[in-house]
């Protein structure tokens, strides 16, 4: 039953992403000044942030679970979802830079939204630095779980609150219209929502594969340790 379910959502993810790439590049979009065809970045750039938030939320939930009852499995899940979230964050910054190059004139503007997302990547990079500087496995899990919860809380104002309060050029911030104004055309919604679901499922898939790999590595290490002693 569980295996069947995993086949279903993984297939769904692949199908949705194929649809996103074909439909996102070929289906009609509204003609707007300045933005023109770059509005298609909505299908690839915005889902990255939905994906990143989902991954970091799952990671934080597993960190809280780890603090309640420390098991090495929960630690691994938290780390791997943080890895996947970081990857989505970096991809989100890169896709945003490609869009900004056409819509704003240059890839990096020092916009509050750009700075906030860059600092978020720094916060999570610091999480991995912290993990690599503790030897004891249990202590490593506990300290990094605490920092992970802290990092999640520090990320929320950087991405969601500060850019909305300042003069940001980013759509949806600083009084600019968000995508809700543009995609009133139902054709854009028809690609955007599947794209979000598809990218999120892909992220979860990557994280679960890496989690299984790490668990297997740990098992091998334990077996070798037992053999040598």
């Amino acid at each position: 039953m569980r295996k069947k379910l995993s086949v279903v959502w993984k297939t769904l993810s692949v199908l949705l992403l194929i649809y996103t790439i074909i439909g996102g590049l070929l289906l009609p979009v509204p003609r707007l000044d300045i933005v023109n065809e770059t509005i298609r970045a909505l299908y690839f750039h915005v889902p990255m942030w939905f994906g990143m938030i989902t991954m970091f939320t799952i990671s934080t939930v597993y960190s809280i679970l780890y603090l309640r009852k420390p098991t090495s499995d929960r630690d691994i899940v938290a780390v791997e979802f943080a890895h996947a979230g970081l990857m989505y964050g970096i991809l989100g910054i890169l896709t945003g830079m490609i869009w900004a190059n056409y819509a704003w004139g240059s890839p990096w503007h020092g916009d509050p939204k750009q700075n906030g997302s860059a600092i978020t990547t720094l916060i999570y990079l610091a999480y991995f630095v912290l993990r690599s500087s503790v030897d004891n496995r249990e202590q490593k899990g506990r300290l990094s779980a605490v920092y992970n919860i802290f990092a999640f809380a520090a990320m929320i104002p950087l991405i969601f609150i500060i850019p909305r309060m300042t003069s940001s050029m980013h759509p949806g911030n600083g009084g600019n219209p968000g995508f809700n104004m543009y995609d009133l055309h139902s054709s854009m919604r028809m690609v955007f929502y599947p794209a979000v679901v598809g990218w999120i499922l892909l992220g979860i898939w990557i994280a679960t594969v890496r989690t299984r790999l790490r668990k297997a590595e740990e098992k091998i290490l334990d077996m070798e340790y037992e053999k040598n002693n």
Partner: peptide, 9 residues
């Protein structure tokens, strides 16, 4: 390393 990004906000 830990303090810099958290303090930026």
């Amino acid at each position: 390393v830990l303090s810099f990004p958290v303090l930026i906000g």
